[in-house]
Design a binder for these strands. Structure first.
Lengths: 319, 319
DNA sequence: CCAATTAATACTCGTTATGAGTATATATAT
DNA sequence: ATATATATACTCATAACGAGTATTAATTGG
């Protein structure tokens, strides 16, 4: 191997392509590969053909999924050995660059399907009750993980991480800590991927949530976290909305993504107060109740205000 | 070239290593290379030797600079062709992963030096007056750039970007938009790097700020933006502080990084109210005025509150 | 047609956070 | 002793926020 080749790696591009339909946040999954779970669309970056990473991503996502990505942003570059190989140590070293893309749902391409992202992260959906899986499975398993630490200091640290991540012992739930939670479960050997990657503690009860290939669940966790955060200071939700929508449609979309319920009246006050939407005189043809006015996104806000986003309230309230 | 080699690239790791001394935010620069300006410490990622990207970074930063990086976080992966080569088209394709690291200043290694980061971004320091360079040079140059657009729509867009980025026409200054501002200046051909990269519009008046090698100034802009944002919701400033400090020391450090002045009394109220610091009975040996109490960082907050940071006020006030 | 139901929309109210001061205390320099 | 510089303590008005109640406009079942 020459000196030049020594530092050579392949770059993989993976995309968490998100849409929301029927109050369910969805991510695009490519079928094949039954071995280790679902996969995000991914492919190699070809440095000869593409000038930019994002350009490369857009090109082959277009080819594979027939989707036109509107919004896309880079998330993170993962390079850990042993976390993106089917079997540790096999094949060339791959560094994977994860992306988040938003789109409105449309016809599916041949080998893809939209899946509710809470399938992979059941503990992240707090729109109804607090997910029972936390108190029943996660909290005890993490307590055991803490107890099993080789020394007291580490044990303490693990307990603290569990408390802060999952809002145990009365601590507040922070919907943005998606990645921290997944990483903790990974380290504790509670997800399928850590078993696959051969970490010890692989004798744990049941794997939590549906597993994914390579490090794709980690990328998806990063994507959810980023979207939940970004929504608050940038009007990215509208990338997921049709041209016109009711304020409740909008609220349900925000709730689907953030995984928490919002106060309806305050949501309206906020969204109107920021000038994010404007009414179109028309009303929606609903089945029940007083018909709601249809609104559209006011693109102009982007030129008026520095950073308008849907700041969701700290705590959840009745819908 | 084989099929496997086709997708092969080299990964470069670059680090913006930051410290603050004497109210000046500094970044570590490696000397050599007089051709195109200063360089951040950077080096190749060796996939054979290192398990993780960050591990690789820490290793050779340790070798090159004799610094022990405490805090480090990944910023962004840049892969644009023509923006990290000394001469466009020469050499292998390099994808560069940028990092932000924080440290307390200590002895310098042989070929490195600490430089005030406002040397590269003179328009970012609003601690005194609004930087004169904005009204005198940047605003007119960007107006000309907008006017030179091939069609009216693009012209409008450019004008809007200039207004929002630089707070023109009475708009608020957003200290976090460091990268957007640099990118706009790059596109407008107003920084040395865009001239070097052979973009048109290279006949502009004078290059703004000191240039850097490769895409290092872009990485530094990303680092500053990230740090300015992160400071507000994570207690990262304390990575830059000594074990004990006065509240004014702390405020000056926050101001140095954010580039804006804060209200002293409110800063104290905030920082104490969040439980970020605790007094150590001792007072500092100052030269003038009433001696200030020395404080230390309360590490415990990390275990108590979900995300405590130094939320600096929107607008600046007298010191 | 009326009452119950459902949802949209409009207000209200108390609490907290924030921006911007004034007032007072404690040191040094002359 | 006085001027000056800084630290620290309070005050106050306003905006933002969480959590309601009240009212309006439609549908649905009798």
């Amino acid at each position: 191997m020459s000196a030049a080749q020594k530092h050579v790696v392949a770059i993989g591009l993976s995309a968490a392509i998100v849409s929301v339909a029927e109050e369910r946040p969805c991510v695009l999954i490519v079928k094949h590969r039954k071995d280790h779970g679902d996969a995000l669309p991914f492919g190699p970056f070809d440095p000869l053909q593409h000038r930019t990473l994002e350009g490369g991503l857009r090109t082959w996502v277009g080819e594979q999924t027939h989707l036109d990505l509107g919004y896309a942003e880079q998330l993170y570059t993962f390079g850990d050995r042993g976390r993106h190989e089917l079997k540790p140590g096999e094949g060339p070293r791959i560094v994977s660059v994860g992306y988040l893309a938003l789109t409105r749902q449309s016809g599916e391409a041949p080998d893809t399907l939209w899946r509710d992202w809470y399938r992979y992260f059941p503990w992240e959906d707090w729109r109804g009750e607090k997910p029972a899986i936390i108190a029943e499975v996660i909290a005890p398993a993490l307590a055991a993980f803490a107890k099993s630490a080789p020394h007291a200091g580490l044990s303490e640290t693990r307990r603290d991480r569990a408390r802060l991540c999952f809002g145990l012992e009365g601590l507040a739930w922070d919907e943005e800590k998606v990645l921290e939670r997944y990483e903790l479960l990974y380290e504790a050997g509670l997800v399928q991927e850590s078993v696959r990657d051969g970490r010890d503690g692989a004798d744990k009860p049941l794997p939590l949530g549906a597993g994914m290939v390579f490090d794709h669940r980690r990328i998806l966790a990063t994507a959810i976290a980023r979207l939940r955060g970004k929504m608050k200071y940038r009007p990215v939700v509208f990338e997921l909305m049709p041209a016109s929508f009711t304020l409740l449609d909008l609220q349900r979309t925000v709730e689907a993504i953030s995984g928490i319920r919002l106060h309806k009246q305050n949501f309206r006050r906020l969204v109107e107060g920021l000038g994010l939407v404007e009414g179109t005189g028309k009303v929606s043809a609903l089945t029940r109740g007083r018909p709601a006015e249809l609104f559209r996104f006011r693109r102009e806000v982007l030129r008026e205000r520095p950073s308008p986003g849907v700041r969701l309230g700290t705590r959840r309230a009745g819908s």
